[in-house]
Structure formats: structure tokens, C-alpha cells
Design a binder for these strands. Structure first.
Lengths: 392, 392
DNA sequence: CTCCTTCGTTCGGTGACCGACCGTTTCGGG
DNA sequence: CCCGAAACGGTCGGTCACCGAACGAAGGAG
């Protein structure tokens, strides 16, 4: 409700808008910035001067204009000097990257995460990665923050992991632990894996330009990152998007959450492999093997894929009725399942979804691959800077 | 992405913020506005002067201060002079009201809506109501817009009703029709009934101060108005919130939408009355009768209420997992069902909802009663004014 | 080489907010 | 009844952000 000292707010807002533009769209000429931001040439000049002074962007003469007239200076983000650390804690991997302003991954490390590794143990290799990267950064480098994506339920206020069945954590204060290890590297944000991937695909992937997006991430469990009206939906405590525990089959199998017939018990990896008669195997390769087998005519694999595809379409239909999204993205191993069962999914979606809600829905696969979580975490880390470029 | 001519934007924003404050909180002293909005005394003075010049607010000496010092002038909305027309098309009623700035209903008319009345026929009595009200408005009155709430799926771009099973409409251009009849009364917005009720309860009812809210409205059908992060979720085409067609029971009864086991087939009025052995009756009184009978010990009514309450808790649990709301409000005849089956609902919700998602959820009944739709529609109509008070 | 186009820079102007100063209104004590 | 303290409104000069016009600079086309 506060309006604040609006003089500075205007400047801050315009600086943020300009910086966000080059962060999202890459190097941009001043002329284009003038038209895109609707600001005067003089103002764009002053804003870029400020940002150059802060070391956030640089200007250069353009290569070839092709048109008459004096060529416009090109403003580009200092993607080499200004960066954030992006971390990701996944089921079987720990990943860390240094991501430059503009979204480019500058360097990246990863290691296996053994089952049973707790939060304290996971922090150490991540911190080691960060310190390794830090030691190689030139002196003029500037870290503007860090963020970690975790495949679990993240309490927004402090980054506590309330519950992560796939990783096996309960009430692990990952935010606190990492902050105490990495307090020299700016503020640390903690985000849910699917949320962060949704952010990445919305910013730089399959959902660019769409303001109502559902990003589904599935492996053993299923979660969603939801963008509604251009803003992430995280709910009151930060636990929104737990679509994996939407009960779709009241008469279904028990779920680890205590309920039964949750969506993830019907469409998760375990369900697919069980239906395909391969319950002894697990992981992304096993899922891919089922899809491949179905392609090659294996009837039990086909049956499993049909069954799972049916439940996927069913749940997506429910979500489409609730959110009326423009895009639904299938990430994780759900991507492969989607590619193998697209017709089944679409058909069931059409049966469950109301015509008005489903008519403009596009079903997509991610464009960012395995780096989505890191790119999204970096976006999280950059948010402070983009909201107020000259602070700190 | 545009920043616009930010000089004017600042003024516009601050004028809107001040006007919105007195609109939401009622008459407020300049001193309090100064602290609440974080603006200088001089600025508040200038802003109120502008708004007084536009006839939107007035100032008056306060009654009794009780404290030392010169009393601060009280700024109050011109709720008598500045108003909007709010209309509501419900299953069996057509309602129209003139609502003053500040949210007070100044006058109100309503009439029955016979089953089978189409959109063209419904427009006429509504337009008549508006013209009747218009003729009684003093010459200095000023209409700033109108809005209509309709219990159906509203296409956002033009206000077409894509589908309303309860009212019995398909592709009725209610927006166009009303606009052509009422073009002299400013811009007309069209909103979904549940969305608009959610807006009302969020602004002036049971969800004040909560930024993550689900308002459930149920009679024969079930719909939801969803507020996430303080903003309404309407989806890409405007059709979000159709939770009534979330399928909760894949083996359930067929629904009018073509699917089966939709939430509204399990918790709608028809389900309750059928389970209670009163399928021959209908309407809100019949629902109330079942709840009363259950209170008095009628076992078939109790059984019906338990069954329906179970499914309500089930669906709310799903929604809680998806949205992690702070408040869930039960409106329509669902209010009575909730009051009669609260324990059952809570118990089932606790079984389906994840602990983290449900732990802070408050279940509530509406505070605005039957006027919620009109008050919410008025909020919709006032939005243009509050976004830019001095335009027009 | 010259003209035209396009852009960067500079500078004066407008508008919005702030802070200080002064006058006004109320309360409370002598 | 008078006077000081407290709280507030109004006025005025100052600062800051943006805009628009004027001028110079940098390329392309003939």
C-alpha cells in the first residue's frame, strides 16, 4: 500500500526494467530500448550510464547496421563479470553452476548424491563447488546472490525443506545451512525444483510469452511449477504446486504421503515400471526403455504407457479446468512418457477438460533440458538485482 | 515491459493508491494517510486536492480527536455521488444495484429469472433496473462504470458466456448485449460469479488480509474464485476456477459436461438431495432442510451429509495441495452443507491434504451473504477508476 | 564528396515529491 | 482566562527524473 519516495522509485524501476530487458533479451541497441521501454533517448542514455557505472552492462559499437544513419550503441549485460551461483539438489545428483547475467552458464560442476545423504552432508560438496568456482573468478567479478533448487516442499520464509519424499528429507534447514556456509556470496534464495524449472522455461524456454503456464516435473514423484497471470503461484507458505498429491483415484494404491490414489502413484516411474512388468528396475533409463519397447511393439509396455498416459491426461485435464493455462510442459521423465503417449494423453485430456478450458492449451516438452533447474535458480538469485540494480 | 511517461505514472499511481485506500478503509484522516502511504504531508494535500477537484472525495473536520493538536482533516469517498452499477445473473434471480464508491449499496432491485430465460431476455429487466436507478440519481451523480457477474464461463476478452449449465446458456454474448443497452453508463466488465464473490470477500469480507484465497461457490454446480499472491487467477481465456469439473471420482456418475465423477456431481445439491432420499426437491431450502434434519437426528440425512462432506473435504484437500491457500470460503448452499458437515470435511481434508499445505488453512463462511456478487461486481467496475482516478 | 538518415549528447523546461517554515487549531495547566 | 505544547495544513523553494529541441557525429547512397 505504500508508495514510497516515488522519485527514487521511478529511477529504480526504470533501471530495473532496462537491466531486465538486456538480461532477458540479450544485447540490445539503445534505439530498440528506446522504443521497447517507451522512454526518451536522453533517459535511456542516462540509465545506461548509471548501469555502466555500476558495472552491470557495457556498451559497444554494433557490428553491421545495414541501414542508413548513425549506428546505435549496443547495450549488453556484463555476463562475464556479474554472476550468481545456482545450486540444485536432485534425487541422485548435486549440481552447482556459476551463471552470468543474461542467463549464460559460465561453469558447472556436479556429483552424485548417494541415497540417504542428509542436508548437512549435501551442503558440503555444494559449498566446495562454490568455493572452487570463486577461486577462479577474476578480481573484477561480482557475485550478486545465490539460489538453490530443491526437489521438496520449501518453506518460503526461511528455506526449510518441510518434506521431500524422493530425497528422503524431513524438516531439513537447507536454507540456514547453506547461508551459514556461503554468507560471503550474497543473499541465498531457496526454491522448489519444479517452481524453479517453471521460472526458467517461462523466462527462456518453452513458455516464453505465455503468462499462464503449468510446468509438470515427474520422476518418482510429481510436482508442478505454476505461473498464473505472469506470476509464480507459491501459496501461503510456499508449498503450492503439489499436484502429485492431488488424489485422482480414490480407490487407488496407497501413497507414501498417507493418502491413496495420488496422481504420482498413478503416473510416477514406479507405476509405469510396475505396469510394464519391470518393477525391479528404476530410473530414467528404465522409463526410456519402456517407451522404446512400446515403440517397438512390446505389448505390455504399450499397455503400461496407455494406462499411465490415461492418468496423465486425466490429471492434466483437472489442472486445465482449474487453471485454464496456455501451456503445459512435461519435464523430468514425464517428458519421455509424454512423447510416448501423447495421443493417449490428449484424448483423455479432451474427455476431462471442458472445451473452453482446453481449447488453447499447448502441450510441450521443455527446451532447457537438464540445466533448467540451474538456469531457474539463477533467475531467482538475479531477482534482487533486477528489482533494484544500484543497491549494494 | 514499458515504463511509460513515468512522471505522470507516479501521480496516477499515488492518486489511485490514495483513492483505493479510502475506498477500502472508509473515511481516513490526512495524518493517517500520510503514514499509511509513506508520502509527505504536502503530497497528501496535493493529491486530495486533485481528487476533490475531480469530485471523488471530500474533506471534513473530524468529530472528536481526543488528542492535543490541530485535528487532521478527514478524507472520505464521495459514496453518494460517485457510483457504479453492479448486476448479477444467477440461477433463479436477476439482481441490480447502484453501489457507491467505498462499497456501500445505495439501492438494489431484483426479480425472478424463469428457467429458460435466454440472454437477450435477461438483459431487458437488468437494463430497466439500471434506467430506473439512473432516473433517481441527483444531477451531480457520476457513474464510473458497470459490471455484471454471471454464473458461467466468461470469455475475458469480450464477456461472452461460453457455457453455463446451471443457467442453461451456451455462447451467449451477454457482454455485447448489455454494452449496447447500457453504453451510456461507462465501460462494462463481465465476471464469473465465483470470481467476483471471491473479489468481494477478499476486499471486504472473510478473506481481508489474506492473499491466497479459494472461494468456493456451490449450488447445483460448483465453481471457485481463486486469489493467489493477492491477484485473481483467471487463466488464459478467463475460464480458470472451474473446480466443479475437477474429476474426483473416476468411477462416479456422469456429469452434464460429458465427463463423469466431477466434483459437482458428488457435492452439488442434486447429490445431497439424492443421497438423502429427497431427489424430488431442489433449491436452497431443500438443502437447508436436509442439514436441519441431520441436526435433529434423521439418519438418512446424516448419511447424506457425511457422504457429501467427505467428498467436499476430498476436493478441498486436492485444492489445498495445489494452491496452499490461507483461507477457503464456502459460499452458496455449500455454506449450509459446510456448517452441517464441518467435522467430516476437516477430517477428510486432513487425510488428503499434505501437512505443510493444510496446516494454516482456515475454513470459513462468507461474511457478505447474498450481496457478495453485487459488491464484487462493483469492485470490478471501480477498478478502472482506481487505476487512473483522473481519467474521463 | 555530398546529402540524408539515424543516433548520441547537451541543455532548458515541466512535473512530482520533499523539507522547512509559518500559521492554525485543539488540549491542558496555571 | 491566558498561554504553551502538540499536531496539523498551507506555502514555497529545492531536488530529481523525464522530456523535447537543438546540435553534432557516424554511416549509407548516389
Amino acid at each position: 500500500m505504500r508508495a514510497g519516495p516515488s522519485q527514487e522509485e521511478v529511477r529504480k524501476h526504470n533501471l530495473g526494467t532496462l537491466l531486465r530487458y538486456v538480461h532477458m533479451h540479450g544485447a540490445t541497441s539503445r534505439a530498440e530500448l528506446t522504443t521497447r521501454l517507451g522512454l526518451n533517448r536522453s533517459t535511456i542514455g542516462a540509465l545506461t550510464a548509471d548501469l555502466i557505472g555500476a558495472g552491470l552492462v557495457s556498451e559497444a559499437a554494433p557490428r553491421e547496421t545495414g541501414r542508413a544513419g548513425r549506428p546505435s550503441l549496443v547495450v549488453r549485460p556484463e555476463s562475464g563479470r556479474v554472476y550468481a551461483y545456482a545450486l540444485s539438489i536432485e534425487v541422485d545428483r548435486l549440481r552447482a553452476a556459476r551463471v552470468g547475467l543474461g542467463g549464460r552458464i559460465l561453469e558447472q560442476y556436479e556429483t552424485e548424491r548417494p541415497r540417504g545423504m542428509n542436508a548437512g552432508e549435501a551442503v558440503r560438496p555444494l559449498a566446495r563447488f562454490v568455493r572452487t568456482m570463486r577461486s577462479g573468478v577474476p578480481d573484477d567479478g561480482r557475485c550478486v546472490g545465490s539460489a538453490v533448487a530443491v526437489a521438496g516442499m520449501v518453506r518460503r520464509e526461511d528455506g526449510l525443506i518441510r518434506l521431500s519424499p524422493t530425497i528422503g528429507w524431513v524438516d531439513e534447514p537447507i536454507g540456514e545451512s547453506l547461508r551459514s556456509e556461503l554468507d560471503e556470496f550474497g543473499p541465498l534464495s531457496v526454491g522448489n525444483h519444479a517452481d524453479v524449472c517453471a521460472l526458467a522455461e517461462h523466462a527462456r524456454g518453452a513458455a516464453v510469452g505465455s503468462d499462464n503456464v503449468i510446468y509438470l516435473y515427474g520422476d518418482v514423484g510429481v510436482g508442478a511449477g505454476i505461473v498464473a497471470g505472469g506470476r509464480r503461484v507459491h501459496g501461503h507458505g510456499g508449498y503450492g504446486g503439489e499436484v502429485g498429491h492431488m488424489v485422482v483415484n480414490p480407490y487407488g494404491r496407497p501413497c507414501s504421503c498417507g493418502s491413496r490414489g495420488c496422481w504420482e502413484t498413478e503416473i510416477g516411474e514406479h507405476a509405469l515400471l510396475r505396469l510394464a512388468g519391470r518393477a525391479d528396475r528404476s530410473g530414467g533409463e528404465a522409463v526410456l526403455a519402456v517407451v522404446d519397447a512400446a515403440m517397438r511393439g512390446d505389448s505390455s509396455a504399450q499397455h503400461a504407457l496407455r494406462q499411465v498416459g490415461d492418468w496423465i491426461g486425466f490429471g492434466v485435464g483437472n489442472l486445465v479446468n482449474i487453471f485454464n493455462p496456455e501451456v503445459v510442459i512435461f519435464g523430468g521423465t514425464l517428458r519421455d512418457v509424454y512423447l510416448g503417449a501423447a495421443a493417449q494423453i490428449r484424448s483423455r485430456l479432451n474427455a476431462v477438460g471442458l472445451p473452453a478450458c482446453r481449447e488453447h492449451v499447448r502441450l510441450r516438452t521443455p527446451e532447457l533440458g537438464a540445466d533448467a533447474a540451474l538456469i531457474g535458480a539463477a533467475e531467482l538469485a538475479f531477482e534482487n538485482l533486477l528489482d533494484d540494480p544500484l543497491v549494494s
